[in-house]
Design a protein around this nucleic acid. Structure first.
Lengths: 120, 120
DNA sequence: ATTATTGTATTATACACTTAATACAATAAT
DNA sequence: ATTATTGTATTAAGTGTATAATACAATAAT
């Protein structure tokens, strides 16, 4: 999974999102140690300050906590992770349906398109 | 349809998107005259300069053109409008599927959820 | 004990976005 | 003819984002 950054939203928010996705997807398993800020920043090609900000948000969202010098650990609360995952999914589905509705697609059309997106 | 503005992306890009949606949805029919910049700006609660920028982008995308003092007219090319609509839909569907995949949902799950989003 | 690694903080700079306040040119309305 | 309306341009100020360059404190590694 690469670091994909668009330029229309603050980088640090996008970094937080992608860190969340990696944690949810098991790239950084519960209880494991995250790579150091500087390393993550280098990977993503951003300034360490920017990655630091993204990690601070991750921490505020309860998905990791810093141990000063021991590094930064992913939360071990598997239920919390699953809760985040379903919450994210709900947001994504709702936004999808909303956007399609604004384009004038019916609920049925919007519901069917993701299964055969070649037909669009 | 209200002017919904989030604060994590430039306002002018969001305004352009919503103007597009209104045109596609027929709020501003093909060939019709758009409200003046100042009026649109007042409606949306933004600075006229910001709305001006959004309209300039709309123009660059070929959905309207300005007549100096006669106001700004929506394109009459209905086919172009339909093309924009399907292009938008394609983007939305693809992004939806991509985001769900990143959360670890299979193609089938992602395709089914929009039809019964209550189950999430 | 010394060194390296880690998270964190600070200061300065540059840039894009947004608002505010005007102003101008062209033409529609009167 | 005069006025109002329209799109457009300009200048200034404030804010948030991102980078760059350092520095510090705590502790793991040696």
């Amino acid at each position: 999974m690469d670091w994909k950054l668009e330029d229309d939203r603050p980088i640090w928010t996008q970094l937080t999102e992608q860190l969340k996705r990696r944690i949810i997807a098991g790239v950084y398993p519960p209880g494991s140690k995250l790579p150091p800020v500087r390393e993550l920043a280098a990977e993503a090609g951003v300034n360490p300050n920017t990655m630091q900000r993204a990690l601070a948000q991750l921490e505020q969202d309860g998905l990791a906590r810093a141990d000063r010098t021991a590094g930064r650990l992913v939360t071990q609360d598997a239920e919390a992770l699953e809760a985040v995952r379903t919450a994210q999914a709900r947001v994504i589905v709702q936004r999808y349906l909303n956007e399609m509705a604004e384009l004038g697609y019916s609920r049925e059309e919007a519901g069917l398109l993701p299964q055969k997106e070649e037909t669009i």
